[in-house]
Design a protein around this nucleic acid. Structure first.
Lengths: 159, 159
DNA sequence: GGTGAAACTTCTAATAA
DNA sequence: TTATTAGAAGTTTCACC
């Protein structure tokens, strides 16, 4: 898995696209004092290299009635059942992320739900999976950072 | 905080944009058998309503040399210092998400780093924050779900 | 609400440097 | 590698359903 050598121009293009994927290439070109064609070529190159995997909308889940976020640590009776349990977890749509982890838990999930009542249902679904021994829930009271752009800056200052 | 009433058309527009924000409105229009103008108006409405907060790129952090993900639970000596600690955490760029939580930990973070060595540095930075009592790290061995689209389907089937 | 077409903007690929 | 250019494609507005 190679590291790619992106120069300052690539970096700045990513920067602008991370904030808004629909920024016209012509705007990017104007700001960076290069041609729109160049922006196009570079974005394409990063897509071909797989650095840019895609793009997605940022939605306001609160406005959609889904304001409840919790993290759930899952303990398994038997670690060999990890793959099986992951498959079952993948069937619960309100589980948005699941990681196999070292440390306290075997599997670690993030869930998004309407409210505590709904979250309870989701957690029960997790508890009901065969070979899940028990779960431990951490309810998010407040989300305070989520800064992709700043991470990118750090990454680029490293390279 | 009002719930918005999105109809099936809005839902399908979001669906397509979630997968790729640069899908031309003309393509969406063709698929949904409506005019491009309508797509434009509806997207604008959802933006104005704040349901669509923005858009962002999905990058391959592995290819950028950042393959290490861990979750870190933070214990505070004094809960009243939560805001202060969050500010300090916000200064560490490799911490990509932080939540104030109920349950075991006071604050719960996700970090992204180059490797174990680098992660250790980041965790030390967390440990060094005044009034952080101790931390507990869970290293992600494997990330297995991250399906925004499926969540959206569930949300829409609810409404 | 939606449409369709016009006017405007952007994209993209080929060519040239 | 980058810039230019021109035709293709997409966006946005608006008069009219």
């Amino acid at each position: 898995m190679a590291k790619f050598k992106l120069d300052e121009i690539d970096h700045q293009i990513l920067d602008m696209l991370i904030e808004n994927t629909r920024v016209p290439f012509t705007d990017i070109a104007k700001k960076l004092l290069i041609s729109a064609g160049t922006v196009h070529v570079r974005v394409k190159k990063m897509e071909d290299a797989g650095i840019i995997k895609g793009s997605s909308l940022t939605l306001d889940y609160k406005k959609l009635g889904y304001s409840f976020i919790a993290y759930v640590g899952v303990f398994l009776q038997n670690t060999s059942k990890t793959a099986f349990v992951l498959e079952r977890i993948a069937e619960i749509p309100y589980v948005t992320v699941a990681h196999v982890t070292t440390g306290k838990f075997n599997i670690f999930c993030k869930i998004r739900a309407r409210n505590t009542e709904h979250a309870k249902d989701v957690i029960f679904m997790l508890d009901d999976i065969e070979s899940v021994y028990r779960t431990e829930t951490m309810i998010s009271l407040e989300e305070s950072i989520n800064d992709k752009k700043r991470l990118m800056h750090s990454i680029f200052n490293d390279l």
